[in-house]
Design a binder for these strands. Sequence first.
DNA 1: TGTACATCAGTGAACGCGCGTTCACTGATGTAC
DNA 2: TGTACATCAGTGAACGCGCGTTCACTGATGTAC
Lengths: 261, 261
Amino acid sequence: MSASATARARVRAELVQEIKDAARRQMAAEGASALSLRAVARELGMCSSNIYRYFPSRDQLLTALIVDAYDAVGEAAEVADARCERDDFAGRWSAACHSIRDWAGSNPHEYALVYGSPVPGYRAPEDTIAPATRVTLVLISLIVDATAAGAVKAPVPAAGDVPISPTARAEAERLTEGPMTGVDVDTVIRSLVAWTQLFGFISFELFGHLVGAVEKGDAIFDAAVEQMGAFVGLGARSVGRTNREGATRGRERDARRTVRA
Amino acid sequence: MSASATARARVRAELVQEIKDAARRQMAAEGASALSLRAVARELGMCSSNIYRYFPSRDQLLTALIVDAYDAVGEAAEVADARCERDDFAGRWSAACHSIRDWAGSNPHEYALVYGSPVPGYRAPEDTIAPATRVTLVLISLIVDATAAGAVKAPVPAAGDVPISPTARAEAERLTEGPMTGVDVDTVIRSLVAWTQLFGFISFELFGHLVGAVEKGDAIFDAAVEQMGAFVGLGARSVGRTNREGATRGRERDARRTVRA
DNA sequence: TGTACATCAGTGAACGCGCGTTCACTGATGTAC
DNA sequence: TGTACATCAGTGAACGCGCGTTCACTGATGTAC
């Protein structure tokens, strides 16, 4: 009974996956807004009307793709973060940032789907909110951890050097009562800056706005990540550290730099 | 002869403008990729085939809109920058950043058209490159000016505190031989960071990624701009300065904050 | 183990729609003498 | 100033296309006794 039920369910789940994969492939070729149910059906050699057995509408298929994309980039960041020593906060920041960029580079259209301009005529339902926060949570956690460990250095420019308006301060304080518990107000604002810088750089790179300005994106991105890590107060990543502490613990050293989820 | 020729040409130019305006309005309602020649013609009460007297194809119309958008945001930044005292570099940075965000807020779909994910099936021709650099040039000029005036403060974290790879250094040096003549290598990299942060924040805000994290966008943006100004080495904007020097020179004080080009 | 029934996967035609672009055409507006 | 001609603006029908979605239907796969 349950054996055959799951058999049918398994076939069904496989087809759902195949449809999403075909849709992803099509999106990679033509862009998100060119996604067509008929083309997906064509690629799978089935009748277009049959797609409706698996997705009630085109929008729902889009939603599934968006959720998958958020999950994929979130998982990539989680995996990269988990590979680091827990108390190597600069390293964790760097690893998370690089994993996000790597994922974006490997899946440019999926990145554009979630971080580019919204698809016209599509309204993101509630279901996408939770997966969307996954990647953000990796970055937040690392800063919260650093704060808890007392490892956040006095930020420079010093907290008092750049005036922060009462409204901005209140806004930052609100966040310390939520996800960023215990984090210094100044650090909260710097985190927001670093967060938007990270995705701003990746978007600019992927959408072609660095053409003519930056050629070696890898190196400049790395420099930007280091700068922002220090800016937030995580300190610069010391090259020696990984050798002295990380390597000798027998962690996977040859982990691929590009994480594909 | 030339009088009547220009008369006809003027009517023609007006219609070109009307078509672009209608297209912009439609874009604002439905998004860039939903732009339809037939809908534009419908709105103007003309035959769809007649659009072809003014634009040879849909792509050319899109290109015109892109060029206009780049020009508009570029002009907004230029105007904002020009209103500042030439040697108030922190003020110029702040004014330029705010003008860009204001423009984006007033013209979200035009912003998305140029800074969002590329429109599928559309390849930007050479014509868009020059207008695209206009807004960047405002930011670059202000940093070059500050450098020339010796006003760029020793950046913090200090230049040596965060290691910069040789590749990144070479890349930055290449820029000092081009548009950023004379600027310190460390400052070049910080400028790239600040530049991508600026657009990253605006994009996140406009595309809904700050929902749930930031409520008072104005205040947080302002704080971010100040932070980045100081990060680049332009110093924090002193509130007193505008009063002491700017106001007494009789410049337009009540200039609207939102620039519409 | 065998049979009657229910559930599901997949089909193919159809509806109604909008799109970009082309073409031969009609009038109106300018130009040249 | 008046007339013959050229140039341009605008029309409307048509081509060929692809789309999302619905519907009544056929077989195959499971379920219950």
